[in-house]
């Protein structure tokens, strides 16, 4: 069980939205993490250094938060390697195959009222709910 954190979650969401708005202002692009990450790998195109810098910022973020708050960032990650390998492959393949993930479709696309993003977001939310229902309540927990 994790505790309900509406205020922290809302503030975090505001920061995510602000970053997406500023990226559009500076680079003229949508802040889709899967789109940025997929172009870290060859063949490399224009702007690859900027994309590496953005991802480096993501990687550095928990250390900045820990330095400011003085408390380490807490998270619980599954230590089942085959499960995490399968999850990673599905997330990576699916995000690029469907032209976006939680950020590109779920935040930027919904904010642009894109019909494609509304469909994609509805599909991945439903798939996520069903997957957790099956793994936690059907197979066992």
């Amino acid at each position: 069980m994790t505790s309900f954190t509406p205020l922290a979650s809302f503030i975090g969401g505001l920061l995510i939205g602000l970053s997406a708005v500023l990226l559009l202002l500076v680079e003229g692009r949508i802040a889709g993490i899967s789109g940025i990450a997929a172009r870290l790998l060859p063949p490399w195109g224009k702007g690859v250094a900027e994309r590496f810098a953005f991802i480096a910022g993501l990687v550095g973020a928990p250390f900045l938060v820990a330095a400011i708050t003085g408390a380490p960032v807490v998270q619980t990650v599954s230590d089942d390697p085959p499960l995490m390998a399968a999850a990673g492959l599905l997330v990576g393949f699916g995000a690029v195959w469907g032209s976006g993930c939680t950020s590109g479709h779920g935040v930027c696309g919904l904010a642009r009222l894109s019909p494609r993003s509304m469909v994609a977001t509805a599909v991945f939310m439903t798939a996520g709910f069903l997957t957790v229902f099956v793994t936690h309540h059907v197979i066992g927990g």
Partner: peptide, 18 residues
């Protein structure tokens, strides 16, 4: 298909790319 696979992986691992 893409978001369906993505959602399954998200539900298994709890991680999306960001």
């Amino acid at each position: 298909v893409g978001p369906a696979l993505f959602g399954i992986g998200w539900g298994l691992g709890g991680f999306c790319p960001g």
